Amino acid sequence: MKLYGYWRSTTSFRVRAALNLKGVAYETVSVDLGAGDHHAASYMALNPSGGVPTFVLDDGTILTQSMAILDYIDATWPDPKLIPADPMARAKVLAVAHGVASDIHPVNNLRVMKVLDGEFGATADQKKAWMQHWMAEGLAVIETQLSSNTPFAFGDAPDLADLCIVSQMYNADRWDLPLDGFPKLAKITANCLAVPAIMAAHPDNQPDAKDDT
């Protein structure tokens, strides 16, 4: 199996972490978003949206969209379980996970930054303010949804909510978002990164990681 992704992509981070936690072997294929590799015809044939990640199974089946890929992974390799079976627990985990994936990430990704820059002439400070605004607003909501009594979002082991949180918090740190108001999120992030399988998925630990971007 092949996972096409970009080292700094938070969506790729989520999927790498899930595969690592479950002990699933996969080959990483770098798609350099900064260099525009996602617009190449060969990649667009795999994923017409030009997004990452793209997960290609051994039989050639192509899966796109990180949350759909994560759902497939959890259904196919159920141990450890990332999405609870209990309806109430499942709803709580998905609310947090989609709070990141649906509310924060879409307005904080590369394509939005390029439009702010190219179409609206946003300065570096304005782009940073944009990123910080939407992350702060979304993370403030998520902070209220988390348990205060568990090391991870809703229990003693990381689940889908935690994988979305730790990847988004990486982006928050990258954009210098003040995190003093998010103690639960900070605790969860530290606990996630203490898990070797998740730390191995961290952007800085990828073979295509770069020091200058």
Rank of each mutant, 00 (worst) to 15 (best):
T144Q: 02
T144R: 02
T144W: 00
T144H: 00
T144Y: 00
T144K: 03
Q145M: 08
Q145C: 01
Q145W: 07
L146P: 01
L146Q: 02
S147P: 01
S147R: 04
S147V: 00
S148V: 02
S148C: 01
S148W: 01
S148Y: 01
N149M: 02
N149K: 13
N149P: 02
N149I: 01
N149S: 15
N149Q: 14
T150W: 02
T150S: 14
T150E: 13
P151G: 04
P151Y: 08
P151S: 07
P151L: 07
F152V: 10
F152Y: 15
A153W: 01
A153Q: 04
A153P: 06
A153I: 05
F154M: 05
F154E: 02
G155F: 03
G155R: 06
D156Q: 15
A157T: 13
P158M: 07
P158E: 09
P158L: 04
P158C: 09
D159A: 13
D159F: 01
D159N: 15
D159V: 03
D159Y: 03
D159P: 01
A161E: 12
A161Y: 08
A161V: 12
A161I: 12
D162I: 03
D162P: 09
D162M: 09
D162G: 10
D162S: 11
L163K: 11
L163M: 11
C164I: 03
C164A: 12
C164S: 12
I165D: 01
I165Q: 04
V166N: 03
V166Q: 10
V166A: 09
V166G: 05
S167R: 08
S167A: 15
S167V: 06
Q168K: 06
Q168N: 14
Q168V: 04
M169W: 06
M169E: 05
M169I: 12
M169K: 05
Y170P: 00
Y170D: 10
Y170N: 10
N171I: 02
N171Y: 05
N171K: 07
N171P: 03
N171F: 07
N171W: 04
A172S: 12
A172E: 07
A172C: 09
D173F: 10
D173G: 15
R174Q: 14
R174T: 12
W175V: 15
W175R: 11
W175D: 14
D176A: 15
L177F: 13
L177K: 14
L177W: 13
P178G: 11
P178T: 05
P178Q: 07
P178Y: 08
P178R: 09
L179V: 13
D180L: 13
D180H: 12
D180G: 15
